[in-house]
């Protein structure tokens, strides 16, 4: 019936008449302050001629949006490829980490920590500057997706591991006692449940992948950001195009976060806020 009460609503008692008056007053003052702030920004735009028609009219053209759409498609492609790769690599790291064989276990831990402690850009530069020198020429989508995936794999491995840990221990013992092997227990009993637990968290990790693919411009892969640059050189409209690109990214990621929260409500673990 009524929306779920959160702590932030529970903090305050029902205000009495005096408090209500005070709240109204501060509300008006804060509204005024926000309005002044907005007007100041609008004035900055106006004073510097950023509302001129030439900066915005091309957004009315279909070709502009087609071009932006192509860029968006590039972003989605690169993100999906990176997401799938990160899932595969992360899975391998996780299996290494939970294995009973000590050296493998240590290697898994080291790889997970390494990929989590190194910035994505360093991986991108490695694949952009160093790998071609070894004579390996990857297609441009791989030059962005592979480093982004490696960078996310440690995070994914941890998410998967938390899912595995969330499966009650008794289930493994029960499965072992009816004669299943460890591998079978993992593939038939534990992992199918674990993956269901962590789907919301994996979706929210996709946000990080989408953000990291913005570095596509380094390797010249035509994603949203790269196409935005082309639009800018065509129309000589820096501010409007970059703002539009930023808004599109924010909307995509906002949507992904919403999906993740919705999935979490249907069951599964609540995802940890990423980075």
């Amino acid at each position: 019936m009524n929306e779920q009460r959160t702590v932030r609503d529970a903090l305050y008692e029902q205000p009495d008449a005096g408090t209500r008056k005070k709240i109204t007053l501060v509300t008006v003052v804060s509204l005024f302050a926000i309005a002044v702030f907005m007007l100041y920004i609008l004035k900055l735009f106006k004073d510097n001629g950023q509302f001129d028609e030439k900066y915005w009219s091309f957004f009315m053209r279909l070709t502009t949006w087609k071009f932006i759409g192509e860029g968006l498609l590039g972003t989605i492609e690169a993100s999906l490829l990176a997401g799938v790769l990160a899932l595969l690599i992360g899975f391998v790291f996780m299996v290494m980490r939970i294995s009973f064989y000590k050296p493998l276990n240590m290697a898994g831990t080291a790889l997970t920590e390494f990929t989590r402690g190194v910035p994505t850009l360093l991986f991108i530069y490695f694949f952009f500057l160093y790998v071609p020198k070894m004579g390996i020429n990857l297609p441009s989508i791989w030059r962005v997706s592979l480093p982004v995936a490696i960078s996310a794999s440690g995070m994914v491995a941890e998410v998967l591991r938390s899912g595995v840990n969330a499966v009650p221990k008794g289930q493994r013992e029960a499965a072992l006692s009816i004669g299943m092997r460890e591998t079978m227990v993992f593939t038939k009993i534990i992992f199918p449940q674990a993956i269901r637990y962590v789907i919301p968290a994996l979706v929210s990790d996709l946000v990080i992948v989408v953000k990291d693919t913005t570095f596509s411009y380094i390797v010249n892969f035509p994603d949203l950001m790269q196409n935005a640059k082309v639009l800018i050189s065509n129309y000589d409209a820096l501010l409007s195009v970059y703002l539009m690109a930023a808004v599109i990214y924010v909307l995509i990621n906002y949507f992904l976060n919403k999906v993740s929260v919705t999935l979490a409500k249907r069951g599964g673990m609540v995802p940890v806020v990423g980075r």
């Binding site: 510097n48 913005t214 570095f215």
Partner: peptide, 25 residues
């Protein structure tokens, strides 16, 4: 929070570096 947790770092940096000078900042 919704804007800044969802904006890619590169996108924000590019806006700051290249677009703000157009507003005389």
């Amino acid at each position: 929070v919704q804007i800044f947790r969802n904006i890619p770092g590169a996108s924000l940096l590019i806006v700051l570096v290249y677009a703000l000078p157009n507003l005389n900042i």
